[in-house]
Amino acid sequence: MEIKKINEQENTLEIKNLVIHYISDEEVVKAVNGVNIIIKAGKTLGLVGETGAGKTTTALSILNLVPEPQGKILSGEVLLQGRSVLSMSERELEVMRGDKVAMIFQDPMTSLNPVHTVGRQIAESIEIHRKVSKQQALKQAKEMLELVGIPSERSNEYPYQFSGGMKQRVDIAIALACSPDLLIADEPTTALDVTIQAQVLKLINELRQEYHMSMLMITHDLGIVAEVCDEVSIAYAGRIIEHGTLEDIFDHMRHPYTKGLFNALPDIGVKRSELKPIKGLMPDPTNLPSGCPFHPRCDYVMEVCSQSLPENKWLSETHCVECHLYKDTNESML
């Protein structure tokens, strides 16, 4: 899938035709199958999809942290501010990680080192990238704690002494400690209670605006997308099947899967007798369907769908979709 270029200098992140498979003795997991993403400076992209769509793997590739030796990047480019991440040396990667790009992971319960104090874990980032003394770094770490709403006296405490929501805040503090240009948030609120979710989301949003960061928000929750994102990419079976601005996707959705996602949401305003889930199950990444990966579950399936992959089609300057239904569509027809 291709996205039109506007001005290269303005793109914080560009991913082109990324293909990543996990290869083991028994099987090949086709996690990412040709993903294209562009995030412009200061903008937030929501990467939406169900579990297993390849979102986390894509995110890890931005840091070049796809787990080896099973994970293999077979083709594609990842450009962070114009520089190719995949061809960087280990040293260059270490300089870049945490400083230019940072990631908040999905499960706050396991992403902190249990035997280091939280203060030390935040300070570590600062020490590495800012060349300051240990005391200085710790002082700045305490300021970060205050920023995320944790009293700085607690910097001497260990992760086990914090709740899930607070651990996630510590993760955010670590990620933002060096003011990265790109923040990747991988389902940062999924593991949290609903009330805490709102707080953490608000925090992320505020900080993002204050620091003028670009952000990649990975989620399967359309509500979060609506609150935080400027543009949306819908992922399915390792491909981006629809992309557009918030308005494009929410008001003018085109792909049958996207429609299905929205229809599956319970809507308190509309009295329906049943929920409308998308029939069938997510495809097995070791055994993907032929042609369009969504065709077995699609209400609008045609014969061509099982035979060939749909090409990417631009429906407007900002909105594109990968579906055989729109192969011959003109902008004027919409």
Binding site: K279, G280, L281, P283, P289, S290, P296, R297, S306
Partner: peptide, 10 residues
């Protein structure tokens, strides 16, 4: 229904 579809939907 097509067999592939059957595989995923039943």
């Amino acid at each position: 229904m097509d067999e592939t579809v059957q595989k995923y939907t039943t």
